[in-house]
Design a protein around this nucleic acid. Structure first.
Lengths: 117, 117
DNA sequence: TCTATACTTCCAGAACTATAGAATTTTATT
DNA sequence: AATAAAATTCTATAGTTCTGGAAGTATAGA
């Protein structure tokens, strides 16, 4: 991942409204949600929401498809993974003990249930 | 982690100069680097660097201590871990397969060497 | 105390970002 | 074709962030 892509993704998330939208999408799962339902879930105005979904999409953090009159948005899980990997890159350079954070992350609720999460 | 703290941290990182500084600090390890050395490593002017280190510190992503005439900065590993955890929070809600990204992250170069990273 | 080094703080102009009202586009229904 | 629904685009205003020059603060050494 390029620095510029990472900055774009981070800037997209560095906004209370967009962060909320993104988390709603993450929880909604890969099948996504209609823009109107996201507006209801977050209390956004349609035009502001549209702008923010556009910014998230441009950063790769959301994907969209039309279904009838609705446009369905889903989280860009792969870009999210790339961003997290970029942030942790070279964290291990020579010193495993610094990397403990990731080990903690990797041993969250899902690991406790035996799932790879 | 509160939404506002996450936004602060994301905004701090959503800047090419600060992202570079942060990654330099991550690679430098917990003992940190003097501000002057960070300036050399990143090519920043002293005043701009100082401002940016202040922004990273306010967001919890850097820690500082004085050593003689130098001020030593180190990455805020714990805040970084909390931020990543916040971003992944509820990713697992009912659907382990969405969480694959974290499993990939957790199986990076360090895992290959048998380290928890 | 004087000088040099290492950083930080202050400031103002330029550039960028956010918000919301109004108009527009796209699609479905009657 | 006419109407309604769902979302986007346009636009202006308000506010925020970035940058670099100049001045200020803290520490060390002579």
């Amino acid at each position: 991942m390029e620095t510029q892509s990472a900055v774009n993704a981070l800037a997209a998330l560095a906004h209370p409204g967009r962060l909320e939208i993104f988390r709603v999408l993450v929880q909604a799962g890969p099948e996504g949600m209609a823009a109107g339902d996201i507006a209801k879930a977050t209390g956004s105005l349609a035009n502001t929401l549209s702008t923010n979904l556009g910014i998230l999409s441009a950063a790769g953090l959301a994907r969209s498809r039309r279904e009838g009159r609705s446009i369905i948005y889903a989280a860009g899980y792969d870009s999210m993974r790339q961003l997290l990997a970029f942030l942790m890159e070279d964290c291990c350079a020579g010193r495993a003990e610094i990397c403990a954070p990731l080990a903690l992350l990797a041993s969250g609720p899902c690991a406790a249930e035996g799932r790879s999460c």
